[in-house]
Design a protein around this nucleic acid. Structure first.
Lengths: 140, 140
DNA sequence: GACGTAAATGCAACGCATTCTCATCTGTCA
DNA sequence: TGACAGATGAGAATGCGTTGCATTTACGTC
């Protein structure tokens, strides 16, 4: 039962949430957004489909979907939060400091190492999130 | 020339900043804070020494010190930012989700792996910051 | 298909961290 | 010491996100 199903209604029901047009719209938008939109952008895109959607509902829906594990919130430094459909593997998020572009590099090896290091300290990981700020190396 | 000098005045001059009482107070507080205070806490501690310090100056000083690389800002999920004197090695920050306690686990190995992975993609790392939310494993 | 109820919604007001404005002050350098 | 760019304090402004409340709606039950 992956979050990557296209049956959004069923995914909502599985999470114990009611199926509403607003939630379907937001889930659909998140599903085919290759970027990581923030609440404002989501509102704008949602209104292109259903102009009744309010900002409060965007936030409440995002919280509900996050709680249900369907989406993931990305807290970048001094920026508004961005959201993505929950990925199947762990990712490190890389921000290109020149363009602002967000890149993902899957890195299960690193996630595993970290999990082991913490277990030795007596902790289990609930979530992990890495923000890397990087710059393209220009080959001269 | 480490940020871990006790000659704060010199560190400020090296960074091209003016030496002011407020900056010296804030640097000293950050230096002997084992925890990671946020702006409010810093203001409170600074006022215990010099009650004229304002919140605006705390924020401006933190930005300036961060810009200069003397301190580091920690952006935790849905919390106000916390600050620490720039560590010499890379750290992963772990938050105990039950107590809110912030733990540091130095992990040069992981930092190195990540640096290499990004280099293969044509990027150089400017900064990296990991937030792990974890829970103590209770031994029963 | 209509009904009752709890959940979800829109709107506006709010909270809080951070930034800005501006008048005043001060560190630094000649 | 004097000049002046940079720094400061106080409070207003900003911006993201949340909440209270009245209204609407999804959905199980008849």
């Amino acid at each position: 039962m992956s979050a990557h199903t296209t049956d959004f209604a069923q995914a909502l029901r599985d999470a114990g949430l009611r199926v509403t047009p607003q939630r379907l719209v937001l889930l659909a938008i998140l599903m085919d957004s290759a970027d990581h939109p923030n609440a404002d952008e989501l509102l704008a895109r949602a209104r292109a489909v259903d102009d009744s959607v309010s900002l409060a509902t965007v936030y409440r829906t995002l919280s509900a979907l996050e709680e249900a594990g369907l989406i993931r919130k990305l807290t970048l430094e001094s920026e508004s939060s961005r959201y993505e459909i929950t990925p199947l593997a762990e990712h490190d998020h890389v921000v290109d400091i020149d363009t602002g572009e967000v890149i993902e590099i899957p890195n299960d090896e690193i996630a595993r190492l970290r999990r082991e290091a913490l277990e030795r300290l007596g902790y289990e990981i609930v979530s992990q999130h890495t923000l890397i700020r990087a710059r393209r190396i220009r080959k001269s």
